[in-house]
Every structure is written in structure tokens, then in C-alpha cells.
């Protein structure tokens, strides 16, 4: 077991989103979270990251796993600065999240942005910006990926890229939890239906 939710309940603004959620995710497994808007998909991922306090129940990690060294979060915002270069973003994440500077070029190459490395991020399209955000997952290897609508804005090639990234991550023993609307990634080991 890498990650387990025990009788988890979350509340936002005095309203209980869901209760009694139980989940055990082992190494190499892929979990999908489904539910209508407002069902608490984002809240669940943020609670696992430690940014929301559970209303009830608890979230447990395996020994040696903690948010500041083991988690990646891809959220609604891409975390980009228009005035900063595409490559400079990846170098910044490598430093901030404890990755290797040497892997910056490889990460850019993998998400298909190597040719744009010297350009400022403000010229990126929405799909390219999302690809740049995904480069975080490569430049700083971390075992647990929390992905909140990661395919938003991606075109067909982008989705294929994300699909392959999740597949490779889980095949290498990593864990991915994704709030998804469409089918993506390998066959999920867990499906959490909220609301």
C-alpha cells in the first residue's frame, strides 16, 4: 500500500461533499475519480496533498512518503509566468521540486516543446501550456501523481502523450490518481464515483 483513505469525508463551506470514502492504492496502480461538477473531485485531490483538512476519517501514506517529496499535483492552473522562458520554467521546477537540471532538456523533448525552449511562455497556446505543466512530472520524478482534469486543453496528440506518460509511470511502480471525464491512461485499477 502506498496511499490509503479511511472513511474519508470532506466538507466545503459547511456542506459535506462526500462521506465514508475508502480506498487503498498500491504501487503501480492507477485510480480514476469520477463525478459531476461540485462533487468534490478537486477537493479530494487537494485533501490528499494535505491542503484541505478532512471533515472526518484520515489519509495515510506508506512510510517515507510525504507531500514535500513524493507528490506531484497537476491542477487547474498551469503555474506559468508569461514573461519567463519555456525552458526556464522547467529549470525552475527542477530546482524547486528537487529534480535534476540535466533532465530539463529531456523533459522538454518528451512533451514536444524542445523547439520552443527559448521563447517566453506567454506565446504558448492552451494545449502547449498544459504540455509544459506536464513537464514537471518528468523533470522531478515523484512516486504519486495527483492529476485534476489533466487533459483539459490538450489535443489528440497531447492526450496520447499524457496517456503514455501515465502508463509508463504506473508500469515503473508509480501511482496516479486522476479526476477524469474521458477515458485516458491504462485500464484503471480503481474507480471512485463521487456524488
Amino acid at each position: 500500500m502506498i496511499l490509503a483513505l479511511h472513511d474519508l469525508a470532506l466538507a466545503r463551506g459547511g456542506r459535506v461533499l462526500f462521506e465514508n470514502l475508502n480506498l487503498r492504492v498500491a504501487a503501480g496502480e492507477f485510480g480514476v475519480i469520477r463525478g459531476r461538477n461540485g462533487a468534490g473531485k478537486t477537493s479530494l485531490l487537494r485533501a490528499i496533498a494535505g491542503w484541505l483538512r478532512p471533515h472526518a476519517g484520515r489519509i495515510a501514506f506508506a512510510d517515507g512518503v510525504d507531500a514535500s517529496s513524493s507528490l506531484h499535483v497537476i491542477g487547474h492552473g498551469d503555474g506559468l509566468k508569461g514573461g519567463l522562458g519555456v525552458g526556464a520554467h522547467v529549470a525552475y521546477w527542477a530546482g524547486l521540486l528537487g529534480g535534476e537540471r540535466a533532465s530539463v532538456a529531456r523533459a522538454l523533448d518528451q512533451v514536444g516543446l524542445a523547439a520552443l525552449a527559448d521563447l517566453p511562455a506567454r506565446i504558448l497556446s492552451r494545449g502547449q501550456a498544459r504540455r509544459l505543466a506536464l513537464a514537471r512530472l518528468i523533470v522531478a520524478p515523484r512516486p504519486i501523481w495527483l492529476l485534476d482534469e489533466p487533459a483539459a486543453g490538450l489535443d489528440g496528440d497531447g492526450k496520447a502523450l499524457l496517456d503514455a506518460m501515465i502508463g509508463a509511470h504506473c508500469a515503473a511502480g508509480g501511482v496516479a490518481l486522476a479526476a477524469l471525464h474521458e477515458a485516458l491512461g491504462p485500464n484503471p485499477d480503481h474507480v471512485v464515483q463521487l456524488g
Binding site: A49, W51, A67, S68, L71, H72, V73, G75, H76, G77, D78, G79, L80, K81, W93, L96, L97, G98, R136
Partner: peptide, 10 residues
């Protein structure tokens, strides 16, 4: 822009 989340993960 979501950059604060990345700072929290550092």
C-alpha cells in the same frame, strides 16, 4: 496561476 501549489510541494 497555481504556482503556489508548486511552492507547497517543494
Amino acid at each position: 496561476e497555481g504556482g503556489l501549489d508548486q511552492m507547497l510541494l517543494s
